[in-house]
Design a protein around this nucleic acid. Structure first.
Length: 467
RNA sequence: GGUGGCGUAGCCAAGUGGUAAGGCACGGGUCUGCAAAACCCUUAUUCGUCGGUUCGAUUCCGACCGCCACCUCCA
């Protein structure tokens, strides 16, 4: 079975067939860098990461572009409030964004272009739109003429677009200069004290949407395979991108549109006011592991609203602990039988297949994780019974490799190194146990526990692990 | 107000016109000197409420209730 996606454009699940066989060109809307990204932002970025990992795992050659929006109204406002030049201000949050992304195990896209470094491309695109009659100048700004693009509203449903004029109570000053209330700015005339770029359109700065069209086309061509982002971007952002891009090129812009649902915290929309607003750093400061946060974010399929709770992260931590321990024990285990029991081998094979099939099916991570749990139990049974064979071990490790490649939730293999002192204590405890001096044995165990070393007595001696 | 989505056990959550995956927590058990870890068993006659279609609905339709989103900056 091949990869299938729910395409927002057609509102149906479709087989994924890239424009060019074996090659995927994908664009994802990235962060606007005026603050620390919050956990809701990362729900989307973790989804995009799972998407890119899965496509690569399925053998596609991937070119993934994610923009960094480093100029817009909020950035200008906050940079001014901070008393910093735009560049210096955004630089800081870009750095923090990558730090957080790294902590969450998010792979870097192949290209992460900044809007401010692509002003000429945007100006060129606006020029193209002006020449074909899709754009017009008005009082120093340039707007896209929606009337010139009959298919406007294809993505979000024409109804939404028709609503705009009536729904908008408040009318911005510059909107008086538009021919139609639905028209949107491609180039904004600069206000005093605002960052501005010189251009044939007059001094100003780009509108919100044009950067994505310009940068997507620059790096991916005029038609791309996948465009993704959060649902809230569907309208007007993505709708406008389509209008701009297709208006200029006359070609379909993106074949598949994938939208991640929003995240709620404690069942409610996240807001600073309600006190349920979290950044990754907030969670790390509270002592939660970044991996557990990633697990909590990726465990719910992307098209479902995700109810994020601290309890959920704690559950994810416990879940991950067992998973990591299972993999570690499997790695360290020596195979003791020549051949695996048929049923065990079958379970592994089936679980591995089910994992891939679930991910193929529009990234059904919940179902994929159910397969991981099956895998885990089968391995633990073999381990407990001492029925591990070399082929079984190899296959099981390969299956966990798949899981790690696609979901990135496991801990990296740990170097098994112990202080001589700790090792000596473990040996002393063993001797005490053999002499049935349990008081001494327990005292040593407690002492090691206090140092974060937990002991587990098994048939083959004492294992230890870090708390 | 308009439009769209969702509502499954204590919590998270998959799924299907044919009788409810998985995880976390809880309880019981095996193992252990005691633990820990692991394993086994148990946990929804029921899928927001009320109707309708159907041989049969949690799954389709309608109404209602609740929540969320978009329509205005937003992942």
């Amino acid at each position: 079975m091949s990869v299938r996606f729910f395409n927002s454009l057609t509102r149906s699940r479709e087989p994924f067939l890239p424009l060019e066989p074996g090659r995927v060109r994908m664009y994802a809307c990235g962060p606007t860098v005026y603050n620390f990204a919050h956990i809701g932002n990362f729900r989307t970025f973790v989804f995009v990461d799972a998407l890119r990992r899965h496509l690569k795992w399925r053998g596609y050659e991937l070119l993934h572009v994610m923009n960094l929006t480093d100029v817009d109204d909020k950035i200008i406002r906050d940079a001014r409030a901070a008393g910093l030049p735009l560049r210096e201000f955004t630089e800081k949050y870009i750095r923090h964004f990558w730090e957080d992304a790294d902590a969450l195990g998010i792979e870097r896209p192949e290209v992460a272009p900044r809007a401010t470094e692509h002003i000429p491309e945007m100006i060129a695109l606006i020029g193209r739109l002006t020449r074909c009659g899709c754009a017009y100048h008005s009082d120093g700004s340039t707007y896209f003429r929606i009337a010139s693009f009959p298919r406007y509203g294809a993505l979000s449903g024409g109804k939404l677009a028709g609503n705009v004029a009536g729904a908008s109570e408040r009318v911005e000053a510059d909107e008086y200069e538009k021919d139609d209330a639905r028209d949107f700015a491609l180039w904004k005339r600069s206000q005093p004290d605002e960052p501005a770029w010189d251009s044939p359109l007059g001094p100003g700065r780009p509108g919100w949407h044009i950067e994505c069209s310009a940068m997507a086309m620059k790096y991916l061509g005029e038609s791309l395979d996948i465009h993704c982002g959060g649902v809230d971007l569907m309208f007007p952002h993505h709708e406008n991108e389509i209008a701009q891009s297709e208006g200029a090129t006359g070609k379909p812009f993106a074949k598949y549109w994938l939208h991640a649902e929003h995240l709620l915290v404690n069942g409610r929309k996240m807001s600073k006011r309600e006190g349920n607003y979290y950044t990754l750093r907030d969670l790390l400061e509270r002592g939660y592991a970044a991996r557990a946060v990633r697990y909590a974010l990726v465990a719910v399929p992307y098209r479902k609203p995700l109810n994020f709770t601290l309890e959920g992260v704690e559950a994810a931590e416990r879940r991950l602990k067992r998973l990591n321990e299972t993999v570690r024990r499997l790695r360290e285990a020596k195979s003791v039988v020549a051949e695996a029991a048929d049923d065990a081998a079958t379970t592994i094979a089936q679980a591995r297949k089910a994992f891939g099939a679930a991910m193929d099916d529009d990234l059904n991570t919940a179902e994929a994780l159910a397969a991981v749990a099956q895998l885990e139990t089968a391995v633990n049974i073999a381990l407990t019974r001492g029925e591990l064979s070399e082929p079984f071990k190899r296959t099981a490790l390969a299956a966990f490799d798949d899981v790690q490649t696609v979901l990135g939730i496991l801990d990296p293999p740990e170097e098994a190194l112990l202080d001589a002192a700790v090792e000596a204590l473990i040996a002393e405890r063993m001797a005490a146990r053999q002499a049935r001096n349990f008081a001494r044995a327990d005292a040593i165990r407690a002492q090691l526990a206090a140092q974060g070393v937990l002991l587990e007595d098994g048939k083959d001696g004492t294992r230890w692990r870090r708390a």
